[in-house]
């Protein structure tokens, strides 16, 4: 295992975060705080409790998840796309690194960044709404697994994209709608039966549901289903990246 190589990529990516601290951390935190102010404090105070949880507190897991999803995808996709765009990818491809080591470096750094953002948002939320985390270990586990899973997705997008426009395409047209419709602001049990069934096709539902369970012991789908779905996303993402490196798709041709 080339640990030095993993460390080099990880540190390199993290140093980019520190160079662009405002854009990397402050900006997503600020926009989430605005959600809390508007939906949590202003509008939320006029909405009934959901399953015994105040609306402001109810949306915290969903908001964290929404930001973490978009940040994981953005960080990882940019991390691998930029060397492709700048041409420095040659160094990565010619280095004695396996694809697992490359992933550990890039996805590890992207997931770390979004995990930190998630934790910062969680603490920030505490200033606006009463917070309770009933299963902190599960909460951390769900958060970490989601960061990794969506960083894998971002990594795939970063390799697939052949322009900055395409880099934004999937996050804007797919991830954001799925996050909004995945139960960030509501429980899917509140939907009519048909829309509830349709919502179950949205993978984000399982992430938010499991994550919300770790806070309030209430979930839209059974916990085991959420865990199984995350495991499935992880496996599929990993398999796609293994295929990319095996065939050299968009990297070696």
């Amino acid at each position: 295992m080339n640990f030095q190589g993993i460390k080099a990529i990880y540190r390199f990516e993290m140093s980019r975060t520190f160079r662009t601290l405002g854009q990397s951390i402050a900006s997503p935190v600020l926009s989430t705080v605005l959600y809390f102010v508007v939906f949590g404090s202003a509008i939320g105070s006029r909405i009934n409790d959901i399953n015994g949880v105040s609306y402001g507190a109810f949306i915290v897991p969903g908001l964290i998840m929404m930001t973490v999803l978009s940040q994981s995808v953005a960080n990882a996709s940019f991390g691998i796309y930029f060397p492709r765009f700048a041409g420095t990818i040659y160094e990565l491809l010619s280095a004695p690194l396996s694809f697992v080591e490359v992933l550990m470096g890039y996805v590890g750094a992207a997931a770390t960044k979004s995990f930190v953002i998630g934790i910062i948002i969680l603490f920030t939320a505490g200033f606006f709404v009463p917070l309770e985390v009933k299963h902190p270990i599960w909460m951390v586990a769900f958060l970490a697994l989601t960061c990794v899973t969506f960083s894998l997705l971002g990594f795939i997008i970063g390799i697939w994209a052949d322009g900055f426009e395409k880099l934004q395409l999937i996050p804007l047209l797919v991830i954001t709608p799925l996050a909004f419709l995945g139960g960030s602001f509501y429980s899917i049990d509140m939907l009519p039966e048909l829309w509830r069934k349709i919502s179950l096709a949205n993978p984000v539902v399982y992430l938010i549901s499991g994550f919300r369970w770790s806070f309030y012991e209430h979930s839209d789908v059974h916990l085991s289903v959420s865990i199984a779905m995350i495991a499935l996303f992880l496996t599929v993402g990993f398999a796609i990246i293994a295929w990319i490196f095996k065939t050299g798709y968009r990297l070696k041709n």
Binding site: N2, F3, Q4, R11, F12, S15, G87, Y90, A95, P96
Partner: peptide
């Protein structure tokens, strides 16, 4: 193998020291 490619492909915002150290790390050297 060490490779100096034809194109001037560098991380524009990195310092000389960091980018050279990064290359050494990629190749598994402490």
């Amino acid at each position: 193998i060490g490779l100096v490619p034809q194109e001037l492909t560098t991380d524009a915002f990195e310092t000389v020291w960091n980018t050279v150290s990064f290359s050494r790390g990629l190749f598994g050297k402490s």
